[in-house]
């Protein structure tokens, strides 16, 4: 059987990759995807604990995280499209001033 700590390690590695991606990436959509990766990495921890401790709560958390991620995707992509319309670029360094 796979021990619990392996799942936690996997989750930690994925979260780190996601966090590094947010810092490295300059493209708004790519950063958005890295944030999704981080959210998913935490989901693994929730599900792992939930199934090892035989308690469904962790999986309900994942369910709610997913809905939050879906809402975030809708609004986030809306913002990204709005930025692209105004500046014709998705580079976050270009979007450093608040007025257009």
């Amino acid at each position: 059987m796979v021990p619990l700590s392996w799942y936690l390690a996997l989750s930690a590695v994925l979260f780190t990759i996601g966090a590094a991606g947010v810092i490295i990436k300059r493209n708004a959509i790519a950063m958005f995807m890295c944030i999704e990766l981080m959210l998913n990495a935490t989901n693994i921890t929730f599900v792992a604990f939930s199934s090892f401790f035989r308690d469904v709560t962790g999986q309900l958390f994942v369910f709610i995280v997913m809905t939050v991620a879906a809402a975030e995707a809708a609004v986030g992509l809306g913002i990204i499209i709005a930025i692209f319309r105004n500046r014709l670029s998705l580079d976050v360094d270009d979007a450093s001033v608040l007025r257009d």
Binding site: V2, Y7, E36, N40, N43, V47, A48, S50, S51, Q59, V62, F63, M66, T67, A69, A70
Partner: peptide, 15 residues
């Protein structure tokens, strides 16, 4: 593998 098929299906559908 964690015996959470429902979450797995929802993961594919939503994400």
């Amino acid at each position: 593998t964690l015996a959470a098929p429902f979450i797995a299906a929802i993961q594919v559908i939503v994400y």
